[in-house]
Design a protein around this nucleic acid. Structure first.
Lengths: 255, 255
DNA sequence: CGAGGGTTTGAAGTGCATCAAATAGTGTGG
DNA sequence: CCACACTATTTGATGCACTTCAAACCCTCG
C-alpha cells in the first residue's frame, strides 16, 4: 500500500512536471525549478458548484485548470455578480494576489466538473526574487491579460447584444477555417450570457437575431456559422480589433 | 549660447533624475540606472487636442505625465471611441507595448494642455533583461492597473448612471475627509461622461438625480458632497468594493 | 413518468441614447 | 466694458435596447 501510494505520487510528479513545462509561465525556466514546483503541487478534482476561494481570502495557492471550467467573478453587496472571466484548459488563475496584499481579488467557482493543479504562491514569490526569466514570464501573462481586459471594456462600450454574442462565437473559432464552422458552446447559455453581461432572455433573443442576420444554424448548444465573413462584417466593424483579434491569445495566458 | 543650452540641459537632467526617483517604476533601482534613463529622456509640452500616438503605431517611447491630462482610448471602425483611462500627474502610459509586438495597444490624446516626459522603450527593454528589481516594479504597476481595470469591468455590469458618477466623485476624494468635501472636476464634463461610458446628456441628468438623492451642491465644476456616508451608501452598496476602494492606488500606477 | 433545471417566448417597464432646442459659459475684437 | 461668436452644458420629447416578470417549453435524469 505504501509502495503503491509512492509510485502513484511518482507518476503524478512526472505528469505535473511535463504539464508545467508546457506553460508559458515556465518557458525557458530551469528544469530544476520546474521540478521544485511539481514537488510542491498536486492535482485536485471538484464538482460543478464548488467555490475554490472567495474574493478577499488569503491567497496561499494559485491554480492551473486541466479539465472543466472555472468562473472568476465578484459579487456586490446587493447580490448581483460580475463575471471577469471563464477559464478552461491551461487557464492560470489566482496569481494576481502576488501583488495585492496576498489576497484574492476575485472569487472562483467551478462551473463544469473540473480537474486542476494547485500550486503554492509562496514558491513563486520566492523564485520571483531569484530568477529573472520567470518574472518576465509573469509579466508577459499579465500584459496579455491586460490587453484582453481592455478589449472587454471596449466591447461593453461599442457592441450591442447580438454583436457581443457574435464576437464570443468568433473567439471560439480557429484561424484555419475559411468560410464555415460548427462549434459547440463550451458551457451553459445562461453562463455565457452573464459572461457577456446580459440576461439569459437577452442572450436567447440576441442569438435569434444573430441567426437571422448572419446565416447560423442552431441545434441546442451546437452552432454552425455558415458564412464567417458575414459574421465578421456584422460584429467586428464596430470594434477596433480585426477578426481573430485574440489569435495566439490562449486562455493559458490568464492570471 | 552653447553654454546656456548646456546648463539648461544639465538642470533638466537633474530635474528628470529627481522626478524618476519618485516613481514606483524606479523604486529601489540603482541610481546609475535612473541617470541613464534621465540622459535619454526629455520634457515636452503640448496643447489640448494633440495626438501623441495612435493605436498600432510602433512604440518607441513611453511617457510620464507631469501636468495636464491625457486620454487613452480606442476608436472603432464605425467612428465611436472607448476611453480606457484618463491620466494626470505621474501617470505612466505607453508601457504596455513592451509585450505586444512593440505596438501601442491604444491611442493617446492630450485633453488638457500638458507637460510630460518622453522615455525610450528600448532602454527599459534592455534593463528588463539585466535588473530584477525594475522587472518586479513593472509587474507591480501592471498588476495594480489590472485590478483597477477589472473594477471597471465590474462597474459597467452593476452600476447605473448616477452611481457611476457618484463612484467617480468618491474616487476623487482623499481618506482624510470625514463627512463633507468640496471637489473640482478635473476636466470637462463631456470628457468625464465618455470616460464613464455615457452621453453628456445622461451625465447631466445623472448628476442632477445624484444631487437630489445624496445632498450635493453644484456650482459649475465645483461639487460639494455634504454627506459622504450618504453618497457611499448610494453608490458603493452596488459594488464589491468599499469606500476608498482605490485608496493608495494613485494614477502613477497606470501603465 | 414526473420533477427540476435550463431555455425560450410574450408583455410590459426602465434607463439610456438620440435628436433638437434652449441656456450658460468663455474668449474675442471693437 | 460690451456685443458677438463659439462651445459646453442643460432640458425636453421621443425611440430603442435591454431588463423584468411571468408562463410555457424542453431536456435530462432519477
Amino acid at each position: 500500500m505504501d509502495i503503491k501510494n509512492h509510485t502513484t505520487r511518482e507518476s503524478e510528479f512526472f505528469k505535473i512536471t511535463k504539464l508545467l513545462s508546457c506553460l508559458a509561465l515556465f518557458d525557458k525556466v530551469p528544469e530544476k525549478m520546474i521540478m521544485h514546483f511539481a514537488e510542491k503541487s498536486y492535482f485536485k478534482t471538484q464538482k460543478k458548484g464548488k467555490i475554490l476561494f472567495f474574493h478577499g481570502d488569503e491567497a496561499l495557492c494559485f491554480f492551473v485548470m486541466i479539465d472543466g471550467w472555472v468562473k472568476l467573478f465578484r459579487e456586490t453587496f446587493d447580490g448581483s455578480e460580475a463575471i471577469l472571466d471563464v477559464l478552461d484548459h491551461y487557464g492560470i488563475f489566482g496569481l494576481d494576489s502576488l501583488f495585492n496584499d496576498k489576497k484574492y481579488t476575485y472569487s472562483a467557482e467551478i462551473v463544469e466538473d473540473a480537474k486542476y493543479l494547485v500550486l503554492p504562491t509562496s514558491l513563486l514569490h520566492y523564485y520571483m526574487q531569484k530568477n529573472q526569466q520567470i518574472t518576465i514570464n509573469i509579466l508577459g501573462l499579465l500584459s496579455k491579460n491586460q490587453l484582453s481586459q481592455s478589449r472587454e471594456i471596449e466591447h461593453f462600450h461599442v457592441q450591442n447584444a447580438p454583436q457581443k454574442i457574435g464576437c464570443f462565437l468568433l473567439r471560439l473559432c480557429n484561424a484555419d477555417h475559411k468560410d464555415w464552422i460548427t462549434i459547440n458552446l463550451p458551457y451553459d447559455k445562461s453562463l455565457i450570457s452573464s459572461r457577456l453581461g446580459m440576461k439569459p432572455e437577452t442572450f436567447s433573443r440576441g442569438l435569434f437575431k444573430l441567426k437571422q442576420d448572419t446565416d447560423l444554424e442552431i441545434k441546442g448548444s451546437s452552432i454552425t456559422i455558415k458564412n464567417i465573413q458575414k459574421m465578421v462584417d456584422y460584429t467586428c466593424n464596430h470594434c477596433s480589433q480585426i477578426f481573430l483579434c485574440n489569435n495566439g491569445h490562449n486562455k493559458q495566458d490568464q492570471m
